[in-house]
């Protein structure tokens, strides 16, 4: 059978149709873009309005603050990205965490000569609250706020680190190189505040040298104190003042 070859007219027709489709396509895209921009604009003004209306709640109410953070995260906005950023300026939220960060650093520095730069998150929270106490109304600070602020502090380098220990967190505020073994020790000592070589070897199944070295490192870093008078255990105990503060008389 003889195939029908399209004539010049048919080809032109086809090209014309394609061109129309293209035009229509970009028209629609532009439309969408415009709509999106408009929506974003609306969203931005709404968020601004919301934020300025609720600025006080954001600062005072930890639950509200947390919800607001989550909302921002859902739409891909990080109000903490920079204290100079648009959101931060608009919302004053950056300032809140910036302030908190400074207070965290202050507390860590003030206590580091006693705890060797390891502090429990709960104790840190208590001390930070105390240092903010001079203001007329005590603003509640939650663990979530502290975690966010510390997370932002990590841009300062290795100085600040969170060490998860059970359902608590420890905050390390000295630039010590802690490896997995060291963190494991801190995590195991978290409950009692001390640990011994034997106890460590028993639970971790480490060789003597490995356990001994890791413990000695922590002594060298000033995080652990040795105690040679433990009659019950019958061996040297390694104590961590940073893990003990609520049990000792507070300074």
């Amino acid at each position: 059978m003889r195939r029908r070859v399209g004539g010049v007219g048919a080809i032109q027709k086809q090209q014309l149709a394609q061109a129309r489709f293209r035009n229509k396509g970009s028209e629609i895209a532009e439309d969408q873009l415009q709509q999106m921009t408009k929506q974003m604009e609306v969203f931005r003004t709404k968020l601004q309005e919301f934020a300025s209306n609720h600025k006080n709640e954001i600062r005072k109410d930890p639950y509200f603050r947390c919800q607001f953070q989550e909302m921002c995260a859902t739409v891909g906005v990080d109000p903490l990205a920079s204290s100079k950023g648009f959101w931060a300026k608009m919302l004053g939220v950056g300032d809140f965490y910036y302030e908190l960060g400074v207070q965290i650093i202050e507390v860590c520095i003030a206590t580091s000569h006693q705890n060797g730069g390891i502090i429990g998150l709960d104790e840190l929270r208590e001390k930070v609250m105390k240092s903010r106490g001079s203001k007329k109304r005590q603003e509640d600070i939650t663990q979530d706020d502290l975690l966010r602020a510390i997370d932002k502090l990590s841009v300062l380098g290795k100085g600040f680190r969170l060490i998860p220990a059970g359902n608590h967190y420890l905050v390390q505020s000295v630039p010590a190189e802690l490896n997995m073994d060291h963190t494991t020790i801190l995590q195991q000592a978290e409950g009692t505040g001390f640990i011994s070589l034997m106890a460590l070897r028993r639970t971790q199944k480490w060789g003597e040298e490995r356990a001994q070295n890791a413990l000695e490192d922590l002594v060298k870093e000033g995080m652990a104190w040795v105690d040679d008078q433990a009659k019950d255990e019958g061996e040297r105990l390694y104590w961590f003042p940073g893990l003990l503060q609520d049990k000792l008389v507070s300074w």
């Binding site: 000033g222 104190w225 105690d227 104590w239 000792l248």
Partner: peptide
């Protein structure tokens, strides 16, 4: 507080401590 911290009664090997 150190008085209730057991290692306070053992001379510390680390010089800074």
């Amino acid at each position: 507080w150190q008085y209730n911290f057991p290692p306070f009664f053992t001379l510390q090997p680390n010089l800074a401590t």
